[in-house]
Simulated assay, not measured.
Amino acid sequence: MSVGCRVVRGPDWTYGNQDGGEGHLGTVVEIGKPGSTNLPEKTAAVIWDSGGRGTYRAGQNGAYDLRIFDNATTGVNHPNIVCGSCGQPVIHGMRWHCTVCTDSHLCTVCYMADKHDLTHPFRRFDTASSEGEAVPKREGCTEIQAKGIFPGAKVVKGPDWEWEDQDCGIGNIGQVTSVGCWARGLTSVRSAVKVKWSSGSTYGYRVGHEGKVDLVYIEEESGGSYYKDHLPVLDHTAEVAPSSGIPREFKVGEKVKVELGKDRFQSMQEGHGAWNPRMASYIGKIGTVHDVSTQGDVIVRYEGLTRWWLHPETLTKVYRMNVTTLRSL
């Protein structure tokens, strides 16, 4: 599992309509770590499309509160495997392989849209390296309507909003026009949406990319149906997907920032430029890649000519979004 996964309630759900009701989507924004006092191991924090946040079991005490609706948002893809229905040359997210027509593969969107023969059983591959999990034929299986931030939904700024007054001011409402990729060249697809605001301006926002949630809905929309028992549970022991489609190679001039907590940031700096207490004040600030050392550490320049040598894994690339870089599906 990874931050950014889009999830729905799972087999051990016991939280009423905290998610907005069965079928409503959320985004995994944090994963529990051993020894953490904030988020226990084998749990995950989710922000629901409606704006609520909760902590749920991902194997804790043998319980699984969530299912993965889509992991394409985390960069999972299956290179050189073509979807037999939509023809996409790369299958993003889970791959579905027909066990009858062995040369037939479907992407999640087509599988859930009832493409191919419903009487044929499939195997689900959660990542490119998965061994595959057998699932029954879709005919006669329970379908659930997916609901949340889909085209047509009315939205307002959410917890990770950092786009100033693009929404034309507090309380302004926008309408989702399409779902797509956060920026060109990334493998994390279906991780962002275009929104048209009352001013007529249209911009793109993160809904899953790197676990960020820029929007919440005030009026949900349907995103088709899904076969709930065919989806994998969110499991702490599952293969860890890449956290995003962003490569960890950095180029001079790129914009970056640290999004870790202070303790995690400090521990990762050991052996990578060391730790200075002043570094904590730069968490969340945008800097510019000045150089990359022969050991791979990144030298980041901030305003005022301050430079830090930072572990590359502490950094997130910053993409300034505009409507032209959001690829519609």
Rank of each mutant, 00 (worst) to 15 (best):
V76T: 15
Y15S: 13
I246D: 15
G253P: 02
E249F: 08
T55E: 12
V195D: 08
T14G: 00
G59E: 05
T43F: 01
G35P: 04
K115W: 08
T108P: 00
V289A: 06
N172T: 12
A280S: 15
I286V: 15
D297W: 07
Q145K: 09
G20P: 03
T99K: 07
V7W: 02
G171C: 05
S36P: 01
S2D: 11
W182K: 06
I218Y: 02
Y282W: 12
D19R: 01
D229T: 14
G171W: 06
V155P: 01
H24I: 01
S178D: 14
F69K: 06
R9Y: 03
S50K: 12
Y56K: 03
P79Q: 11
K317L: 06
D160E: 08
L106W: 04
H78W: 08
S293G: 05
M1I: 13
Y282P: 00
H236T: 07
Y226T: 11
E259R: 13
E303M: 00
E270K: 14
D65P: 03
E133G: 01
C83V: 11
S188K: 01
N276W: 09
L315H: 10
P247T: 15
D229H: 13
Y217V: 11
S2N: 14
A146F: 07
R184I: 13
S85Y: 10
L118K: 09
Q145T: 15
V179N: 01
T14A: 11
R320V: 15
